[in-house]
Design a binder for these strands. Sequence first.
DNA 1: CCCCGATATGTTGTGCACAACTAAATTGTG
DNA 2: CACAATTTAGTTGTGCACAACATATCGGGG
Lengths: 148, 148
Amino acid sequence: MTDDLVLRRQVCFALYAASRALTDVYRPILDGFGLTYPQYLVLLVLWEHGDDAPTVSELGAQLRLDSGTLSPLLKRLEGAGLVVRRRSARDERRVEVGLTDEGRALRERMDEVPLAVARATGLSAAELVALRDTLTRVTETIHRQKEQ
Amino acid sequence: MTDDLVLRRQVCFALYAASRALTDVYRPILDGFGLTYPQYLVLLVLWEHGDDAPTVSELGAQLRLDSGTLSPLLKRLEGAGLVVRRRSARDERRVEVGLTDEGRALRERMDEVPLAVARATGLSAAELVALRDTLTRVTETIHRQKEQ
DNA sequence: CCCCGATATGTTGTGCACAACTAAATTGTG
DNA sequence: CACAATTTAGTTGTGCACAACATATCGGGG
């Protein structure tokens, strides 16, 4: 009997469960805006970009998602009137993703969302920062190894 | 401009990205056994149970998954010959999920999997334990709040 | 200038997650 | 005991993730 094979000892399961639990916290909040969690993440990136509309791959690089996930997701955001997609004039392979006025306006209305979610975790600000940094380090270690 | 709305500041994104990164580490390993990551988690629970075959809801309680996810997943595990499902004699609503000999035998063959994955994170044993405990605490805080 | 490899996006198919619903068995209560 | 609420699995529909593939465009070397 190898204790390592016990569910609650596995970091991976803790990560998987925590990720889904946090999404559960977001769900009812985002539902009020008609958004899913990955759609919200895409909007976060677009809000950060301000005026320059990133391409689909630039979005994907930040979120670590490929076109197979982003294409249909962006189509839904466009259908909701939050986003516009246009082929780049200079390079017709690229598709630039920009915000509509409605998409920009949503930013202020969602200002309180991160605070509400952070509260639901029950962690202090310092613990949240430490957790985020550890997780970011794990993610980057893994991706660095994959590129070799 | 509210800094809280920047992607890399969000714990939730760190969690979401780390969870997918770790699944990426598992994928090629589990592929060799013909398993997906959630299927592997189900086997972990079954191996822990030993001889008494848990019901679908007992599995779901440990993994925090509902029958909408587990039913088709278990059907695939049964199709792969790793698992059997049988209606309980005492309570015909319940379905007990047991291991086949092949499912039991898989346990030893997968003994090295957790170690290989832990190594890929680049964290020390102590850091892994600390991370796991923090994540478990977050998950339980969230679920405790939801029950009220 | 033409072709060839590389790049960017989109599509298809599989497998989770989860909400909402259905069907069947069981339990508690009058 | 009857029967209404509850419990347990399963089904349906939507939306990610991701692999594998398709299509179109670009850029560079002959």
